[in-house]
Amino acid sequence: MEDGFDTHELDEFSKSLLDLAEQKLPKESKKYLKKEANKLKTKMKKKAKEVGIPDKGNTNFYNKFKAGKVYNYQGEMSVRAFNSSPIAHLLENGHKQIGHKPDKKDTGKFVKGYAYTEKAYQDFKESYYSDTEDWIDKMLKEKGL
Protein backbone atom coordinates (compact mmCIF):
# COMPACT_ATOMS: atom_id res chain seq x y z
CA MET A 1 0.00 0.00 0.00
CA GLU A 2 1.57 3.24 -1.18
CA ASP A 3 0.19 6.74 -0.54
CA GLY A 4 -3.15 5.30 0.56
CA PHE A 5 -3.76 3.39 -2.69
CA ASP A 6 -3.68 -0.38 -3.03
CA THR A 7 -2.14 -1.13 -6.40
CA HIS A 8 -1.98 -4.91 -5.91
CA GLU A 9 -4.96 -5.55 -8.22
CA LEU A 10 -3.52 -3.30 -10.93
CA ASP A 11 -0.20 -5.11 -10.76
CA GLU A 12 -2.00 -8.42 -11.27
CA PHE A 13 -3.97 -6.92 -14.16
CA SER A 14 -0.77 -5.68 -15.83
CA LYS A 15 0.78 -9.13 -15.38
CA SER A 16 -2.24 -10.83 -16.94
CA LEU A 17 -2.14 -8.38 -19.87
CA LEU A 18 1.54 -9.12 -20.41
CA ASP A 19 0.85 -12.88 -20.33
CA LEU A 20 -1.97 -12.39 -22.85
CA ALA A 21 0.34 -10.42 -25.13
CA GLU A 22 2.95 -13.19 -24.94
CA GLN A 23 0.35 -15.79 -25.94
CA LYS A 24 -1.49 -13.90 -28.69
CA LEU A 25 1.35 -11.80 -30.09
CA PRO A 26 4.57 -13.79 -29.65
CA LYS A 27 6.47 -12.06 -32.48
CA GLU A 28 5.75 -8.59 -31.15
CA SER A 29 6.62 -9.71 -27.62
CA LYS A 30 9.96 -11.13 -28.73
CA LYS A 31 10.74 -7.99 -30.71
CA TYR A 32 9.91 -5.81 -27.70
CA LEU A 33 12.03 -7.87 -25.30
CA LYS A 34 15.01 -7.85 -27.67
CA LYS A 35 14.70 -4.05 -27.99
CA GLU A 36 14.67 -3.67 -24.21
CA ALA A 37 17.70 -5.97 -23.86
CA ASN A 38 19.58 -3.75 -26.31
CA LYS A 39 18.68 -0.72 -24.19
CA LEU A 40 20.02 -2.47 -21.09
CA LYS A 41 23.20 -3.43 -22.97
CA THR A 42 23.75 0.22 -23.86
CA LYS A 43 23.18 1.29 -20.25
CA MET A 44 25.64 -1.35 -19.03
CA LYS A 45 28.32 -0.08 -21.42
CA LYS A 46 27.69 3.52 -20.37
CA LYS A 47 27.77 2.62 -16.67
CA ALA A 48 31.05 0.69 -17.13
CA LYS A 49 32.60 3.85 -18.58
CA GLU A 50 31.15 5.97 -15.76
CA VAL A 51 32.61 3.81 -12.99
CA GLY A 52 36.04 4.02 -14.57
CA ILE A 53 36.77 0.67 -16.16
CA PRO A 54 39.72 1.34 -18.47
CA ASP A 55 39.67 0.21 -22.09
CA LYS A 56 43.08 -1.36 -22.28
CA GLY A 57 44.60 -4.71 -23.07
CA ASN A 58 43.56 -7.13 -25.75
CA THR A 59 40.20 -8.18 -24.27
CA ASN A 60 38.08 -5.66 -26.22
CA PHE A 61 35.92 -5.32 -23.10
CA TYR A 62 33.66 -2.60 -24.48
CA ASN A 63 33.06 -4.45 -27.76
CA LYS A 64 31.82 -7.58 -25.97
CA PHE A 65 28.51 -6.24 -24.61
CA LYS A 66 25.66 -8.26 -26.12
CA ALA A 67 21.93 -8.81 -25.96
CA GLY A 68 21.02 -12.50 -26.08
CA LYS A 69 18.19 -14.32 -27.77
CA VAL A 70 14.68 -14.43 -26.37
CA TYR A 71 14.07 -17.78 -24.65
CA ASN A 72 11.59 -19.46 -22.29
CA TYR A 73 12.59 -19.47 -18.65
CA GLN A 74 10.22 -21.15 -16.19
CA GLY A 75 7.30 -20.63 -18.58
CA GLU A 76 7.97 -16.96 -19.30
CA MET A 77 9.80 -15.18 -22.08
CA SER A 78 13.24 -13.91 -21.04
CA VAL A 79 16.28 -12.30 -22.59
CA ARG A 80 19.76 -11.52 -21.26
CA ALA A 81 22.12 -8.60 -21.64
CA PHE A 82 25.72 -9.53 -20.82
CA ASN A 83 29.40 -9.02 -21.53
CA SER A 84 31.22 -11.97 -23.08
CA SER A 85 34.70 -10.69 -22.27
CA PRO A 86 36.85 -13.21 -20.37
CA ILE A 87 37.46 -10.63 -17.62
CA ALA A 88 33.91 -9.26 -17.31
CA HIS A 89 33.04 -11.34 -14.23
CA LEU A 90 36.28 -10.23 -12.54
CA LEU A 91 35.52 -6.56 -13.13
CA GLU A 92 31.92 -7.00 -11.99
CA ASN A 93 32.48 -9.01 -8.79
CA GLY A 94 36.11 -8.40 -7.86
CA HIS A 95 38.92 -10.92 -7.54
CA LYS A 96 42.01 -11.97 -5.61
CA GLN A 97 45.19 -10.43 -6.90
CA ILE A 98 47.57 -13.12 -8.14
CA GLY A 99 51.20 -12.65 -9.18
CA HIS A 100 52.64 -13.38 -12.61
CA LYS A 101 53.97 -16.61 -13.99
CA PRO A 102 55.86 -18.87 -13.24
CA ASP A 103 54.82 -19.16 -9.58
CA LYS A 104 51.50 -17.17 -9.66
CA LYS A 105 51.90 -16.30 -5.99
CA ASP A 106 48.81 -15.07 -4.09
CA THR A 107 49.48 -11.53 -2.88
CA GLY A 108 46.67 -11.65 -0.30
CA LYS A 109 45.01 -8.55 -1.75
CA PHE A 110 41.45 -8.39 -3.03
CA VAL A 111 40.57 -6.09 -5.94
CA LYS A 112 37.06 -4.74 -5.40
CA GLY A 113 34.58 -5.14 -8.28
CA TYR A 114 32.86 -2.23 -10.00
CA ALA A 115 29.32 -3.72 -9.95
CA TYR A 116 28.51 -1.90 -13.20
CA THR A 117 25.82 -4.44 -14.18
CA GLU A 118 23.83 -3.99 -10.97
CA LYS A 119 24.10 -0.21 -11.18
CA ALA A 120 22.93 -0.23 -14.81
CA TYR A 121 20.04 -2.53 -13.87
CA GLN A 122 18.89 -0.14 -11.15
CA ASP A 123 18.94 2.75 -13.63
CA PHE A 124 17.15 0.68 -16.27
CA LYS A 125 14.39 -0.74 -14.07
CA GLU A 126 12.11 2.31 -13.94
CA SER A 127 12.33 3.04 -17.65
CA TYR A 128 11.58 -0.63 -18.35
CA TYR A 129 8.36 -0.46 -16.34
CA SER A 130 7.17 2.67 -18.14
CA ASP A 131 8.20 1.24 -21.55
CA THR A 132 6.27 -1.95 -20.80
CA GLU A 133 3.14 -0.02 -19.86
CA ASP A 134 3.42 2.02 -23.05
CA TRP A 135 3.92 -1.15 -25.10
CA ILE A 136 0.86 -2.80 -23.53
CA ASP A 137 -1.22 0.32 -24.28
CA LYS A 138 0.02 0.27 -27.86
CA MET A 139 -0.87 -3.41 -28.25
CA LEU A 140 -4.33 -2.76 -26.81
CA LYS A 141 -4.97 0.06 -29.29
CA GLU A 142 -3.38 -1.37 -32.41
CA LYS A 143 -3.75 -5.13 -32.07
CA GLY A 144 -6.97 -5.26 -30.04
CA LEU A 145 -5.80 -7.48 -27.18
Rank of each mutant, 00 (worst) to 15 (best):
Y62W: 11
G99N: 07
K119G: 01
Y32F: 15
E50N: 06
K143R: 14
K41R: 14
P26N: 14
L10A: 06
E50Q: 12
N93V: 03
K69H: 12
S84Q: 13
S85R: 07
K43I: 07
K35L: 11
Y62G: 07
L18W: 10
K64W: 03
D19G: 03
K30D: 02
M77V: 03
L10W: 09
K15I: 04
K138V: 04
Q23W: 13
L25E: 11
D11I: 11
F124C: 04
V79C: 07
F65C: 00
F124V: 07
K125F: 11
K31S: 08
K35Q: 13
K96A: 10
M77C: 06
E142F: 09
K96F: 09
Q122G: 03
K119S: 05
L91M: 11
V111P: 01
N93Y: 09
A120P: 01
K35S: 07
A81N: 01
F5C: 04
G99E: 08
L33H: 03
F110A: 05
D123Q: 12
I136V: 11
A115W: 11
M1Q: 01
K43V: 06
G144V: 07
L90E: 04
Y114Q: 00
N93M: 00
R80Y: 15
A115I: 10
G113I: 02
T107P: 05
K41A: 05
A88H: 00
D123C: 05
L91S: 00
F5D: 04
E50K: 14
M1N: 00
E118M: 08
K125T: 08
K41P: 02
F110V: 05
K47H: 05
K101V: 09
D123I: 07
K104C: 05
H95K: 07
E12Y: 01
N63I: 06
S29F: 03
K141Q: 08
F61L: 03
D134N: 15
N58M: 05
Y116N: 04
M44I: 12
E28C: 00
